[in-house]
Design a protein around this nucleic acid. Sequence first.
RNA 1: GAGCCUGUAGCUCAGUGGUAGAGCAUUCGACUUUUAAUCGAAUGGCCGUGGGUUCGACCCCCACCGGGCUCACCA
Length: 526
Amino acid sequence: MNEAIANQLSWPFREAERVAARLKEKGKTSALFETGYGPSGLPHIGTFGEVARTSWVRRAFTELTGLPSRLLAFSDDMDGLRKVPDNVPNKDMLKAFLGKPLTQVPDPFGTHSSFGAHNNARLRSFLDSFGFDYEFASSSDYYLSGKFDNALLHVLARHDEIVEIIRPTLGPERRATYSPILPIHPRTGIVMQVPIEKTDAQAGTVVWTDPETGVRFETEVTGGSAKLQWKADWAMRWYALDVDYEMSGKDLIDSVKLSSAIVRALGAEPPVCLTYELFLDENGQKISKSKGNGLSVEQWLKYAPPESLAQFMYHAPQRAKKLFFDVIPRAADDYINGVVTARTSADPYGEPAWHIHAGDIPENAGSPIGFTMLLNLASVINADSPEMLWGFIRAYIPDATAEKYPFLAQLIQYAITYNQDFIAPNKKYRAPTELERTGLKDLQARLAAGFDEYPGETAAEKIQNMVYAVGKENKFTPLKAWFDCLYQVLLGQAEGPRFGGFVALYGVDRTIALISTALAREAAAV
RNA sequence: GAGCCUGUAGCUCAGUGGUAGAGCAUUCGACUUUUAAUCGAAUGGCCGUGGGUUCGACCCCCACCGGGCUCACCA
């Protein structure tokens, strides 16, 4: 093993070491990583976090051991439809299919063979959009094809033992009826949550009674004629597939504990598990969809690149973190700084950027300018086009082009969007005084007439000198008041960029229009 | 009831047993024709409280106090 890796302490490597130890103990030569998805709801920011984090552990495992591995994205699409979701069409149609496996429910969107298939497709396209390396698995496929049969028969043989593991954790009502085995009703197709009256390990069947009709059935547990209740299902999956690693949120701590106990009852060792903390909103309160607090993947990616979201997910998974808008710029800058650090560090394995880029940081990753600075700049010059930002950036970095700094080019787009959505709408434009009206009209007229007569090598310098001339000739005292006027009346802010450079990049015609707007605004107010 | 996270500068937070850190805010300075996203510096800390381990504790252990979250129906 590489000494540098052995000595370094980043959490993906620590986790990878645990996986390596498990494999060594079991004599395995490849590792299976799993991430699981509930059937209800669409992929969200937590989904991204879980797959990204698992991928980092997997990559660290590769670096550490050189052994092959797989990442299985497992969808529990055989679960029964419990309630009609709010956010889908054709709700009335769905009512008729309550209780049936999601892969047996028609797709309310009408685009896929079933509701389950629809959600699976959404999940896969979500994961694909980030370029994750994974294999998709459908629970229904596994049940129906018989891949789980051996494990299911094993669960049947240990049925009573498993019941005794779960039973103490249940409320009195459920305690009376609980079984890890949920037969599919042979006539209605509904996933039945009923008392199991008899188990026959030899025949591979369970006996139960339909509570509505009183009809008794003997159902095979194999071949998709039955499925398992959640905790037993998770355990059986670990057992059947020999899963080596799976992480989950702290809301599943008890499930991990119980599923692990079930796996042991089946005679196997549970996988290496990691519990991560959930996200909070900016006030440290829980995130709930009804309140609309927190942040969606779409919102994040509208204002910053995916690398910044990955950076946020990398840091301290076992710590509860506030996830709200203001953390985005910092995450972006942490990433940008991390790229530099990872390139120059003697121990790149400890750097988030190493993990985010799967050990191979592209030549053109990173940015010569921080994101926070770009946001400030975009705000100050009220940027509404990439050209404006490039123009100001070149004052500091003459060779700055999109070709040379493609990541900076992306950041510029994000900064413009940010400015348009958050800064521009909140600008407070002051009405000009009489003196200022005169000065602005003068400036407008001179811009329209041309400014070649003023000293300076460039248009920016000529305009700059003209602006000073206007201020002096109109007797602004102190002269600073003239510039305060330009920023407060034209740009809606206390301070701003050098005005000559601003006009040159913003455009003479647009500046003239900007002045007209300001003058009209004052007139309307009077 | 059970479990998890958290308490460090005014604010938001890093901190891997060995000199207490960053960003923002504040103040001062540099640059600029008295206007710039900038640059430099300063200020700011019983690291929640009390014990313990250690040559040495923000860090490890115990107790307590404060702030949150999760699970006890389903997944």
